Amino acid sequence: MKKLGHLNRDIARVLAGMGHTDSLVIADCGLPIPDGVECIDVSLKIGTPGFFDVLDTVLADFKVERAVFASESLTQNTAVAGRAGQFAKTGVGIEYVAHEDFKRLCKHAKAVIRTGECSPYANVILHSGVIF
């Protein structure tokens, strides 16, 4: 049995296959999943698991170079906006785009991890960095 890293086999597989600049989405339960993009649905019920729970476990096992958030999160979800600010402190590039543009960008993701989160604009596109 795997001892370290992400235990969800689908998430671990996607993370292991990521190359530099590939993208992965962590989404609330309402974000539409584009056709042709793998959906790893970890939702159990409304609110479980939460966006931050899933984000933290992914970040523990994934090198992020850039993160994209919906600009609406700045006014509609201060918790997500606050976490975005924390990314900048660690050298991760931050970008904000309109939610409609965010949804279009999701079409290029390797996968979308769907959480049980039910707060507005609790979504992020993580672009893979390199570990060397």
Rank of each mutant, 00 (worst) to 15 (best):
Ala98Arg: 07
Glu95Thr: 10
Arg114Ala: 10
Arg83Glu: 06
His108Ile: 01
Thr75Pro: 00
Gly91Trp: 11
Leu105His: 07
Ala88Trp: 07
Asp101Gln: 13
Lys89Ile: 05
Gly85Thr: 04
Phe69Ser: 07
Arg104Cys: 09
Ala70Asn: 04
Gly91Thr: 08
Lys110Met: 12
His99Phe: 14
Ala88Glu: 15
His108Phe: 12
Ala81Leu: 02
Val97Arg: 11
Val68Met: 11
Asn77Gly: 03
Asp101Thr: 13
Lys107His: 14
Cys106Asn: 06
Lys89Trp: 04
His108Gln: 13
Val64Ala: 11
Ser71His: 05
Cys106Gly: 08
Glu95Val: 10
Thr75Gly: 00
Lys110Cys: 11
Gly82Arg: 03
Val97Leu: 13
Thr78Ser: 04
Asp61Met: 00
Phe102Gln: 08
Lys107Leu: 08
Lys107Gln: 14
Glu100Arg: 06
Val68Arg: 06
Val92Arg: 08
Ile94Gly: 12
Thr90Trp: 12
Ala111Ile: 03
Gly82Pro: 03
Gln86Met: 13
Arg66His: 15
Ala109Pro: 09
Arg104Glu: 15
Ala111Trp: 02
Ala70Cys: 14
His108Arg: 10
Arg66Thr: 10
Arg114Cys: 11
Gln76Val: 02
Val112Arg: 05
Leu59Asp: 01
Tyr96Val: 06
Ala70Asp: 13
Phe69Gln: 06
His99Lys: 04
Val58Asp: 12
Val112Cys: 13
Glu65Asn: 05
Lys103Val: 14
Leu74Arg: 14
Thr75Phe: 01
Ala79Leu: 05
Leu74Phe: 03
Tyr96Glu: 10
Glu100Met: 06
Ala67Gly: 08
Lys110Gly: 08
Gly82Tyr: 03
Ser71Cys: 05
Ala88Ile: 09
Gln76Ala: 15
Val58Cys: 10
Leu105Trp: 04
Glu100Thr: 09
Tyr96Gln: 08
Ile94Glu: 14
Phe62Val: 00
Phe62Glu: 00
Glu65Leu: 14
Asp61Val: 00
Gly85Val: 05
Ala67Tyr: 08
Glu72Phe: 06
Ile113Gly: 11
Ala109Asn: 08
Ser71Phe: 04
Phe62Trp: 01
Lys63Pro: 00
Glu72Ile: 03
Leu59Trp: 02
Ala67Thr: 07
Tyr96Lys: 04
Val92Lys: 09
Gln76Pro: 00
Ile94Ser: 10
Glu100Pro: 01
Gly82His: 03
Leu59Lys: 01
Ala67Met: 08
Ala79Pro: 00
His99Met: 10
Ser71Ala: 15
Glu72Leu: 05
Arg104Asp: 15
Leu105Thr: 03
Ala84Asp: 05
Arg114Glu: 07
Leu59His: 01
Ile113Asn: 09
Thr78Glu: 07
Leu105Ala: 08
Leu105Lys: 14
Asp101Ile: 12
Val64His: 02
Ala79Ser: 10
Lys89Ser: 14
Ala81Pro: 01
Val64Trp: 01
Ile113Met: 10
Gln86Gly: 07
Gln86Ile: 04
Ala84His: 04
Arg114Pro: 08
Gly82Trp: 03
Ile113Pro: 10
Glu100Cys: 05
Gln76Glu: 15
Val58Glu: 10
His108Lys: 12
Lys107Glu: 15
Ile113Trp: 09
Ala111His: 08
Ser73Trp: 03
Leu105Phe: 11
Val97Ala: 13
His108Pro: 01
Ala81Ile: 01
Val92Ala: 14
Ala60Asn: 01
Ala81Arg: 02
Glu100Asn: 09
Ala111Gln: 06
Asp101Trp: 02
Gly91Arg: 06
Lys110Glu: 13
Val92Trp: 12
Ala70Lys: 03
Ala81Ser: 13
Leu74Asp: 06
Thr90Gln: 15
